[in-house]
Every structure is written in structure tokens, then in C-alpha cells.
């Protein structure tokens, strides 16, 4: 049945004409979707790679070998390597808390989880400037006394990135753990396994797909974050310039090809993220 329907073009699986649109409506709807996807999704994607390789492959490599670009890549990798593990701890703890227990205020907590997502990235950056700015921040006296720089430096960028990407891993884990139910964990605990053993040997293997996708998505968003990092970084070339910030600098200096060359790296990362999501959905469908 499944193999058959794949070749029935423009027809939904397992259906009859009574619950299906006439062929010309189906064709029209698919056509509208194609046009919208090509104009808004595919062409921007192709443009990135076209502009990056417009002046040949050696120019592309030159743009990536530029010392400022290398600094930006290293800075972006270091921010992500701190932010993502921080978010991983939060995501695992929150998912366990929300799916394994009932407690007062749980739905409120789930709502709060969405807060970083609802806040504009610019405002997210502003929050940490207001807290840690050496001149205007709440903690300015303490920070000046100990001569600590948080804003316009790495720590501020890590904090802002962690804030912006906070919900992602938890958001992927919660539905996956909810779908699995708690029976297997109950069985493990009843048979005498410790809490940690249950967590690592029962819970994690069950949701490893969702966990992996959550990490990949969180990482892609952390590396690509622009608004919040732009506000807290001060965008000092070679020092606090991440890949997206350096793309902006290059673009404003009319070095379009170099800007797109760097963009192509982040685009590949985005495509990899989508690919992982597809793989996980595919293996999930195969299981049922």
C-alpha cells in the first residue's frame, strides 16, 4: 500500500474521491505552493551559494582564509561550545521536570519557557546591557571594582546567546518524552534501578533522536544569532565579531562576495539541521 501510493502523483494516500478535491483544484494548490516556495525559500537559498561562488572558488577560499573571518569563526565556535552545553543541562532538567511530575504551576512554567522566544532579540541584548553595562548597568559598581568586563566581551555574548536559545532543546525533548509515557521509567525504578541509571539507560535512549535534533537546532541558532549578540558585543572587528556580525561588517563595506562566502557556512549548517530533522522524522515513522 505504502509503496504504491508514492507513485500516484497528486493523490493523497488511503482516500477516496468523496473526501478529496477535484484534480484541477489539487493541481492549482500545489502550483501556488511551488511558486511561493520558489520565490521565498528556494531562491534565497540558491542566491547565497551563487553570490559566494560568483568570482570563482579561489575567491571563495580567500574570503574564508581572511584572518578576521577566522577570528569570527573561532569566536562563534567558542560561544556555541559554552551556550549549547548550558542549554543542554537546562533542556534535560526541564523536560524531566515537566514530563515526569505533576505540580502546581506547571502550565505557567511551560509558558515561561516560551518567553525568550517571544522577546525580540534586540530586547534580549538590551536586558543584559542594562544589567552589566560598565556605565549604565545595575552591577556597574561591582563590575568596575573587580575590573570585570561582561558586556562588549565574550561572557556577555555567551549569556545573550544562551538566553535566546534557551527553549530549543527543552521544546524538542518535552513532546518526545510525553509521547513515550512514563511506564518504562516506572518499571526500571520498580526493578531497583537508581534515578540516574533510569535516566541514562531508559529515558535518554528513547528520546535520542529528539535530543540530537534539539542540540543541532540549538547549535545552529546559537551560531547564527545576530540581534542579541550585536547589541551586547559592540562588534569589535577581530575581537567580539561573530560570523553573523562579521557578515554584516563585510556587507556594509560592499564586500558582498566575502559576506556571502561566510554566509554559505551558516547556510550549510542550517541545511544540515533540516536534514537531521528529516532523518529523525523518517526513523520515527518507520518505528510506528
Amino acid at each position: 500500500m505504502e509503496g504504491n501510493t508514492r507513485f500516484r502523483i497528486f493523490r493523497p494516500p488511503k482516500t477516496n474521491s468523496a473526501t478529496n478535491e477535484p484534480i484541477y483544484i489539487r493541481f492549482l494548490l500545489i502550483l501556488i505552493m511551488f511558486i511561493f516556495f520558489i520565490l521565498f525559500l528556494l531562491m534565497p537559498l540558491i542566491t547565497v551559494f551563487y553570490e559566494a561562488f560568483k568570482h570563482g572558488f579561489s575567491m571563495y577560499l580567500n574570503a574564508l582564509k581572511d584572518p578576521f573571518a577566522c577570528d569570527a569563526i573561532i569566536l562563534t565556535l567558542s560561544i556555541a561550545s559554552i551556550s549549547v552545553p548550558l542549554n543542554l543541562i537546562f533542556g534535560l532538567a526541564t523536560a524531566w521536570l515537566i514530563t515526569k511530575f505533576d505540580f502546581y504551576g506547571k502550565s505557567l512554567l511551560v509558558t515561561f519557557l516560551d518567553l525568550p522566544f517571544a522577546v525580540s532579540p534586540v530586547i534580549a541584548g538590551l536586558l543584559f546591557v542594562l544589567l552589566f553595562s560598565p556605565t549604565h548597568g545595575w552591577f556597574s559598581d561591582i563590575l568596575r571594582f573587580f575590573d570585570i568586563r561582561l558586556i562588549f566581551a565574550l561572557p556577555g555574548m555567551v549569556i545573550a546567546t544562551t538566553f535566546v536559545t534557551l527553549p530549543f532543546i527543552a521544546r524538542e525533548l518535552i513532546p518526545a518524552m510525553q509521547a513515550r509515557g512514563n511506564q518504562e521509567e516506572y518499571a526500571a525504578i520498580t526493578l531497583g534501578a537508581s534515578g540516574w541509571k533510569t535516566f541514562f539507560n531508559v529515558t535518554l535512549p528513547n528520546v535520542k533522536g529528539a535530543l540530537f535534533y534539539g542540540i543541532v537546532l540549538c547549535n545552529a541558532r546559537a551560531m547564527g544569532e545576530f540581534g542579541a549578540v550585536s547589541v551586547v558585543s559592540g562588534n569589535i572587528k577581530g575581537k567580539t565579531s561573530t560570523i553573523p556580525l562579521y557578515i554584516e561588517t563585510l556587507y556594509m563595506e560592499y564586500k558582498t562576495q566575502a559576506a556571502f562566502a561566510l554566509s554559505s557556512l551558516l547556510t550549510l549548517l542550517a541545511l544540515f539541521t533540516l536534514f537531521i530533522k528529516k532523518c529523525i522524522e523518517f526513523s520515527y515513522k518507520k518505528r510506528i
Binding site: L41, T47, G224, F260, T273, L274
Partner: peptide, 24 residues
């Protein structure tokens, strides 16, 4: 493929989307 590509704006950094749409 089309089903996957829906999430592109979600995964693509906003700065990249910005310069790409501008060029387009």
C-alpha cells in the same frame, strides 16, 4: 524536500536571510 525546506527560515541565521533577500 518541500516539507523539509519549510523550516529553512527557522534554521537560517537572520543576517544571512537579510543579505540574501536583499540581493534577490
Amino acid at each position: 524536500f518541500f516539507d523539509s525546506i519549510v523550516d529553512l527560515p527557522f534554521a537560517l541565521p537572520t543576517a544571512v536571510a537579510g543579505i540574501s533577500l536583499t540581493a534577490l
